[in-house]
Simulated scan of single mutants.
Amino acid sequence: MLFHVYILYSPTKGRYYIGHTGDDLNERLRRHNSNHKGFTGKTGDWTMIYNEPYSSKHLAYQREREIKAWKSRKRIEALINSEHSDS
């Protein structure tokens, strides 16, 4: 089973969301775009713009925390635009 760190973008919010999952990425995106109480639940226009696969949940979680710790939109956008991007 592969785990993924992913970055979503919402044009409505003009914001990124960083997460990790062991689920199918398309199903995870569908759940983010469903109407729920969380941060991603109200806009419904999230698109998956980046992902990185990992062999373990622990590694994916570590990478998610690393990216979130950057607290830098420019650094996140540089990652998205890197050669590893799936967009």
Rank of each mutant, 00 (worst) to 15 (best):
N81R: 14
T43K: 03
T12Q: 04
L59C: 04
T12S: 10
E83R: 14
E66D: 10
R30T: 10
S55Y: 13
L29Y: 05
I80N: 05
D23V: 00
Y50F: 14
T47I: 15
D45Y: 00
L79G: 08
R31C: 03
K68G: 10
S85G: 13
K57P: 05
K57M: 14
E66K: 06
L2H: 02
H84R: 11
H84N: 13
N51S: 10
M48Y: 02
R73Q: 12
W70Q: 14
K57E: 13
Y61A: 11
N33Q: 01
E77A: 15
S72F: 12
M1G: 14
T47K: 08
R75L: 02
S72K: 03
L25R: 07
H58Y: 08
Y16Q: 09
P11T: 14
M1L: 09
Y6F: 00
R15Y: 06
N81G: 09
N35P: 15
M48N: 14
W70H: 15
I67T: 05
R63E: 03
Y61H: 10
G38F: 08
A60Q: 09
W70V: 12
W46F: 00
E52N: 07
M1H: 06
E77S: 15
L29T: 00
K74N: 10
I67F: 06
D24E: 09
Y61K: 09
S87I: 13
S34E: 04
R75W: 10
L29E: 02
T21F: 01
N81V: 00
D24M: 08
I80Q: 04
R30G: 00
K13N: 13
S87Y: 04
